[in-house]
Simulated assay, not measured.
Amino acid sequence: MTVEFLLILAAGAAAGGLINGLAGFGTALFGLGFWLQIMDPVHAVAVAIFMSVATGLQGAWLVRRSIMDQPRRLAGFVVPGLVGIPLGVAALSFLHPGYLKITIAAMMILYGGFFTVRRTLPRLERSTPVIDGCIGFLGGIMGGAISLSGALPTMWSAMKIWSKSETRAVLQPFNIVILGVTGIVLLFRGVYTLETMTHIAVALPVALIFAQTGIALFKRLTDDQFRQLLVAMMFLSGTILLAKEVL
């Protein structure tokens, strides 16, 4: 590996780790922009999934009490999400991943843009287990198809009255489980080669350090500030995703 290769690899790890530590998602969206310059798409995604799970575990530990307080809420997202993963993998046989990413990016931009210009976000106070399950199911499909498991759950949770810890206690474990299972599928497909694991070994310490920086920033946010951050991240993430696909 050249010095330039190492710098780009580390830059992607730093960007993805920081965002994951701060918002609880976004490693792939922010890291892939760097890694696709030095790796083929399949191995870049494999690295991104591993980094998402590894850095996500730190954030999940941070809100472990909130996770244990509401296990049924989390299960309401995760269980349908697991059902959706094989459907997402199967969908790749007849859906073009690029078109699907553009559609999702457009949704993220419209959602983020609309609620960014509003003074207040909707505040859904009642329990919505059926909708939660549908969101988890669709998130699982998107995770299996294009590794974007967190987009819809993030949009939905930003409209809830949950505290920032409660929100993260859903988003972080959900992404860890969905992307972890997707990573296992890639493992059995032989994607995690010695070369890929070498790239991960180099990038992982950088990602973990910057994730801690993001977590430190997360602790300083109020609940409302965190909800606004999620909305802004949706707009930014959608813009980045759309730019990658179009350009």
Rank of each mutant, 00 (worst) to 15 (best):
I104Q: 04
I109T: 09
F210S: 15
A91P: 01
I135K: 09
A46S: 11
A11L: 12
V79S: 10
A169F: 08
V45F: 08
N175M: 15
A13H: 02
L221S: 10
P205F: 04
A151C: 04
I141R: 09
I161R: 15
E245K: 02
A90F: 11
L9F: 01
N175K: 03
T2M: 07
A44E: 02
L18F: 14
I38S: 00
G88C: 03
S127K: 12
G98P: 04
P71K: 10
D132K: 13
L221E: 10
I109L: 06
L247M: 12
G56I: 08
A91S: 15
L100S: 11
A91V: 03
L208A: 01
S93I: 03
R65D: 15
G214Y: 05
F115D: 07
M234A: 12
P122F: 02
L179F: 02
T2F: 04
L124Q: 05
W162N: 05
G59H: 11
V45M: 12
G136L: 06
G33Y: 01
E245H: 02
G17D: 07
S157W: 13
V83P: 04
T196W: 02
G133P: 04
P129D: 03
I215C: 05
F94I: 04
Q37E: 15
I67C: 05
Y111Q: 01
M107Y: 11
M159L: 15
S237K: 05
R65C: 01
I146P: 00
T193Q: 06
S149T: 10
W156P: 02
T27S: 14
L7R: 10
G98A: 12
P80G: 06
E245I: 00
S147W: 12
A90E: 10
R64M: 01
Y111E: 03
L247E: 07
S165V: 00
W156C: 06
F210P: 05
I131W: 12
V181I: 14
I215D: 07
E125Y: 13
L204H: 08
K101H: 08
V191M: 09
P86C: 04
G112W: 09
L230I: 02
H96A: 13
V170M: 06
T213A: 14
C134T: 10
A28W: 04
L242G: 09
S163A: 08
V45Q: 07
R119T: 14
G21I: 07
P71Q: 09
F94M: 07
